[in-house]
């Protein structure tokens, strides 16, 4: 009972944060609200007993993403342009309402949270719960699945992170400053 109460309050805060993000024009405040949004999501994950996911959401979503977005905003202009008020919201609103209604209709078929008969609980989950400790000796099932049973997927994820780092280095990182300094010196020599 108390779980439902907490979840409803957290979801209400989540909705309030989302609506304020949409209505706001100050980018700095929006980034801060994104951080709050991530923390609220993390709290919801904790209530749903998904502690590992909550941990990741709090560290990556609220921590690193906020810092990276702040670093990006420091590079771009601080001020914002007034949103034009002449556009008609009716077509986008209709699209959003229809899509939202379809999604809500789709949730009617989803099994209840924690339902033992749900397909997600019937497939490989019982195997992991029964066999992960005798087979891997790791009490945290999430770690056992992530690193051992699904080791291939995690290797792919690490390579994705690595590729992202390489891409950022190629695009905006690395030797840019030195070559700039050199070209500046060259210009001064020309003068």
């Amino acid at each position: 009972m108390i779980d439902i109460f907490i979840t409803v309050i957290l979801l209400a805060f989540l909705a309030i944060t989302a609506v304020s993000i949409v209505r706001m024009t100050n980018l700095f405040a929006i980034i801060m609200l994104f951080g709050i949004f991530s923390f609220l999501s993390a709290a919801i994950f904790v209530v749903m007993d998904a502690v590992d996911v909550a941990f990741t959401e709090a560290a990556v979503g609220a921590g690193i993403s906020t810092v990276l977005m702040l670093a990006t905003i420091a590079l771009t202009r601080d001020h914002h342009e007034k949103a034009s008020t002449s556009h008609r919201p009716w077509l986008p609103l209709a699209v959003v309402i229809v899509t939202g209604a379809a999604l809500v209709y789709g949730t009617l078929d989803i099994p209840w949270f924690g339902d033992p008969e749900a397909p997600a609980q019937m497939h490989v989950a019982p195997y992991y719960i029964e066999r992960s400790v005798p087979e891997t000796g790791v009490p945290n099932v999430v770690t056992a699945v992530l690193a051992s049973y699904r080791g291939f997927d995690t290797l792919g994820e690490v390579i994705v992170v690595f590729t992202a780092g390489i891409a950022v280095m190629l695009l905006i990182g690395g030797r840019r400053r030195k070559s700039n300094a050199r070209s500046n010196e060259g210009e001064e020599d020309d003068k």
Partner: peptide
């Protein structure tokens, strides 16, 4: 194996996050 693999994950994530941050902030 799990210990070693997690170590590799931690090292890559740690350094890539810093590479991205230094690239943006720099």
């Amino acid at each position: 194996g799990i210990l070693l693999v997690e170590l590799g994950v931690g090292m890559t994530v740690f350094s890539v996050m810093l590479i991205i941050f230094f690239a943006f902030a720099g």
